[in-house]
Amino acid sequence: MNKDNKFYLGLDIGSISTKGVIIDKDDNIIAQSYLWTEGDPINAVKKVIEELKESLGKEVKIVGVGTTGSARELIGTIFNATVIKNEITAHAIGTLKFHPDVRTIFEIGGQDSKIIIIDNGIVVDYAMNTLCVAGTGSFLSSQAKRLAIPVEEFGDYALRSKKPSKIAGRCTVFAESDLVHKIQMGHTREDIIAGLCDSIVNNYLNNVGKGKNIEMPIVFQGGVSKNIGVLKSFEKITNSEVIVDEYGHLMGAIGVAILAKQSDKEIDFDFEIKDLNFRTSGFECGGCPNNCEIVCVLQGNKILDAWGNRCEIGREKALAKYKQ
């Protein structure tokens, strides 16, 4: 094993899926993994690390770990990450690696969607959806279930449509009732699915993309980017070419691995960490009417960290609770 060869692990723990990559010092991807989070981020990450280890087939020295996604704090604490970054920055950094000239990133994931505007290699504007999951992956998959079509085939159905139905897209509830109505009126499934793809794109552009300067090259990422129907709708409605690349779903993980590489800190990451027992435990503080929900992260019975508190009382209570 060459001692100079340093490697970096990037983990992107989303609401629906968990992604992991290992890159070398030249940012080449040498291992990757993509699994469902299934409501258990700790376990999902353990499995991802297991998979990464297997696909490597050899021992490598990992000196940096980065985490992103909605469980970044939790996983970052457990795996002693060198970098914990929000998903907006991570996606931008990852994408810039593959598309240095990118101007616009569309990202639609399981429960959120975002747009990132880049000028001259730096993020200049961004937005994320608020309050509502309309037009995200979970909406698509619930509608796929209603139509009894595997979500993977959704795109092909959409492409076969000649005349997409018009589906109200502002809100999941409206879209759903409109969709039911169109089904009962006798629209074909192909037209409805194509209409749904259009409505997702319109909803995205009118909410998240509102007021943003959308310029080419455009890169489309996130789980929904694998849906060819939505991709075609994007191209049709923005009247521009939209790029989807094979690493689209891994961009956050790659970005945060690159950030881990750029950081000054170095750690000695041990793959065996996946065999340790981590758990979380929550309680309501009760120190004042705020009643903060405190989450404690534990390794065995040792407390690693606690959060959710608005003031010091909650932290002290958490520490006292798990004092040896």
Binding site: T89, I122, V124, M128
Partner: peptide, 19 residues
């Protein structure tokens, strides 16, 4: 949500400044 966006905003500002 507020925290994530704020973090990203800070990153945006610092990268712009460095550039």
């Amino acid at each position: 949500g507020v925290k994530t966006r704020l973090e990203a905003f800070y990153d945006l500002l610092i990268m712009k400044k460095q550039k």
